[in-house]
């Protein structure tokens, strides 16, 4: 474990908690893409199948459990408890356009052609593009609530910090995982225009609006 990865995990945890609290306390999931949340729940499900077979540390197991519980709780709140506030008219990104190509790629490009490894690879590729429905929804509505933009900033920062962690691990341990690194770079690049808007607008107290 290194400080970059710890900060990355905490940023990821913060993002998940921010979103869950936003929906729970405002009793509304307006402006939030339910499809992205379903994809994140799928990412954690396919990545943490080794939760009970491959014990790394208490921290690792606890975080995996928290991510799984919070992501399913968010999906539940959005599609059941606060379904009336779910903006399905703007959350129209076709998930199959992501899941099918990512599934195919996971079969073609992986480290080991075994079920667990292919599912792990699928989760890495899927996580890289899972935010697209959310970014697409914001581009359709042309704006995002401030709390949602904080959520996205924390979520985007997590994988950016992981990239620093991978560089650090490469130079200190010689460890690197090209699949995770390439997917992590794609994932972070997708946030770039949002990062620009967040830093130039939200941090100046303005509403996050996209140029129509």
């Amino acid at each position: 474990m290194n400080i970059f990865r710890l900060l990355g995990d905490l940023s990821h945890l913060l993002a998940i908690i921010i979103l869950l609290l936003k929906i729970w306390r405002t009793r509304s999931c307006a402006g939030v893409s339910g499809k992205s949340q379903i994809l994140f729940a799928l990412v954690f499900t396919t990545r943490y199948l080794d939760l009970f077979t491959n014990f790394i540390s208490m921290y690792n197991s606890a975080m995996k459990l928290i991510y799984l519980v919070c992501s399913y709780a968010t999906v539940f709140l959005m599609y059941f408890k606060f379904k009336a506030t779910y903006d399905s008219n703007h959350d129209t990104f076709r998930m199959e356009f992501l899941v099918v190509p990512v599934g195919g790629l996971a079969f073609l490009v992986n480290h080991d052609f075994t079920p667990l490894e292919i599912l792990w690879t699928f989760s890495i590729y899927l996580e890289a593009v899972a935010i697209l429905p959310q970014l697409f929804m914001i581009s359709k509505t042309g704006e995002a609530e401030t709390i949602t933009s904080h959520y996205l900033f924390a979520l985007g920062s997590y994988r950016a910090l992981y990239i620093v962690n991978w560089v650090f691990r490469f130079y200190t341990e010689g460890f690197f995982d090209l699949i995770a690194i390439v997917a992590g770079c794609v994932q972070t690049i997708l946030y770039c225009d949002f990062f620009y808007l967040y830093i130039t607008k939200v941090l100046k107290g303005k509403q996050l609006t996209l140029p129509a």
Binding site: D9, D50, I56, G174, F175, D177, A180
Partner: peptide, 10 residues
């Protein structure tokens, strides 16, 4: 190369 299957990251 190191053992990839050392899945110690989240």
């Amino acid at each position: 190369t190191l053992d990839y299957n050392r899945k110690d990251e989240l």
